[in-house]
Amino acid sequence: SPEVQIAILTEQINNLNEHLRVHKKDHHSRRGLLKMVGKRRRLLAYLRNKDVARYREIVEKLG
């Protein structure tokens, strides 16, 4: 489901952010981070168009 995919991506994004705080010059990982953020944004847009209630619920849960 989109909610699960968004939750997994959010966790991976948070982990990668911590990694990049330590390894500032790791541009390869930064590119992966940007791809993940874009994918999460697309999934959220899809969910917002399909079911606003589910969209609001996941945004509330994940912050």
Rank of each mutant, 00 (worst) to 15 (best):
A53E: 15
V59H: 02
E57T: 05
T10C: 08
R54L: 14
I8P: 01
A45N: 09
R30W: 14
D26R: 04
N14P: 01
N49W: 12
E11W: 08
H23G: 03
R31G: 05
H19V: 04
R42G: 04
L33K: 03
N14K: 09
E11T: 07
Y55C: 04
I58V: 07
L44D: 00
R40H: 03
R56E: 12
E57V: 06
I58C: 07
S29R: 07
R31Y: 06
V52E: 15
A7F: 14
R30M: 12
K50F: 14
T10Y: 03
S1H: 10
K39E: 14
G32L: 15
N49P: 00
Q12L: 15
N15S: 10
K39S: 05
Y46L: 12
V52P: 15
H27P: 06
V59E: 02
L62N: 02
H28S: 14
K39Y: 07
L20G: 02
H27Q: 11
G38E: 15
K35Y: 09
N49S: 12
R42E: 12
E57P: 00
R54D: 02
Y55V: 02
R40M: 12
L20P: 01
R31C: 12
S29C: 13
G63C: 15
R31L: 13
E3F: 04
K39A: 10
T10L: 06
S1G: 08
Y46I: 14
Y46W: 11
V22R: 10
N14F: 07
H27L: 09
H19A: 04
V37H: 07
R21P: 02
I6W: 03
N49C: 14
M36E: 02
R40E: 01
H23S: 04
S1N: 09
L44S: 00
E18H: 09
K24A: 09
R48I: 04
R40I: 13
L20V: 04
A45F: 05
E60V: 08
K35V: 11
L43Q: 01
K35P: 01
A53G: 11
E3P: 02
P2N: 03
L43C: 03
L43P: 00
K25N: 13
A53S: 11
N15Q: 13
H28M: 12
I58G: 00
I6D: 00
H27D: 08
V59D: 01
A7S: 08
K39N: 04
L43T: 00
H23C: 10
L34W: 11
H23E: 03
G32N: 15
G63S: 12
M36F: 04
A45S: 08
V52F: 15
R42L: 10
L62T: 03
R21C: 09
V37D: 02
G32M: 15
H19L: 06
R48Q: 06
H23A: 05
H28C: 13
R54I: 07
K61F: 08
R56Y: 12
H23V: 04
A7M: 15
M36W: 03
R40S: 02
I58K: 00
L47F: 02
R30Q: 06
I8F: 13
L43G: 00
A7P: 02
L16E: 01
H28D: 13
R56G: 05
H19T: 04
Y55A: 03
H27C: 11
Q12S: 06
R48C: 11
M36N: 01
Q12F: 09
R41E: 08
Y46H: 10
G38W: 13
K24I: 09
D26H: 13
S1A: 08
K61V: 06
L44E: 00
R48K: 14
K50W: 08
K50I: 15
L44W: 02
Q5P: 03
G63V: 15
N15H: 12
R31I: 11
L43W: 04
E18P: 01
I13D: 01
H23L: 03
L47M: 04
E3K: 02
E3C: 07
H23M: 04
T10A: 03
D26F: 04
P2K: 06
I6V: 04
K50E: 11
V59A: 04
K50P: 01
G38M: 15
S1I: 08
I8W: 14
E57H: 05
A53R: 10
T10M: 08
G63I: 15
I58A: 05
N17K: 15
L44Q: 00
V22W: 09
Q12H: 12
L9K: 00
T10P: 00
K24T: 12
V22N: 10
E60F: 04
N49D: 11
R40G: 01
S1K: 06
H19W: 14
R42V: 09
